[in-house]
Amino acid sequence: MWQWFHKLGSPRWFYQISGRVLPWLALASVVLIVSGAVWGLGFAPEDARQGNSFRIIYIHVPASFLALAGYYVMAVAGAVGMIWKMKLADMVMVAAAPLGAALTFIALFTGAVWGKPTWGTYWIWDARITSMLVLLFLYIGIIALSRSFSTRETSARACAILALVGTVNIPIIYKSVDWWYTLHQPATIKLTGAPSMHPDMFKPLLVMILGFYCFYALVLLLNTRTEILQRESRTTWVKQLAQSK
């Protein structure tokens, strides 16, 4: 039963398998993001009160979704690496950190750009926005920590512990708008029940979210593959790969 799991732990096997998935993921993300963006930015109706400025939701919400989901990817990879001492899992964890940091930054930046015309301010220290800023610092902390040890094993362990401690922040970000009084509005897309958004506006958003998921998977695989090549650069299979190209 654990066969596939141990096989997955082999960087070489992972490199070969992921290479086959890459073109499909690239195709899916381009098609979904381009069609979702054209649909959302060009054809979806404008909002009755916000006008066209609401359209930033088509970037803001998918980026925020992946910033949160990506943290779990990183933390679970960290935990797997810690429990099974799996090198590949450490590589995935290190690969997920800059990607998550970029997405968190996009979420914060687009939120600020939208906040000025809507709320009247770029920034406010409410629970949602502050906890999102903490998430950005957690991602940056993991990037910094992963580069500040001389041995890979210590580095992976330290990063995994920080990533695991940080998981507490994710439900806080998600529920902050319900638990406390915040300026940020509650979730439009609910796990249970219909979204409080007109279907004509919601459908392109769904396409964008799917597109961002594909894009996330694509970039995570690319980052992990780079990490594999760097760390395994002294093995024969990487040397052969480099010569054959």
Partner: peptide, 18 residues
């Protein structure tokens, strides 16, 4: 000294709102 608008989570096209 400062007043901010708090937007709700509803998004509606103008025709539907009308």
């Amino acid at each position: 000294q400062q007043v901010l608008a708090k937007h709700d989570e509803e998004y509606t096209p103008p025709e539907v709102a009308d």
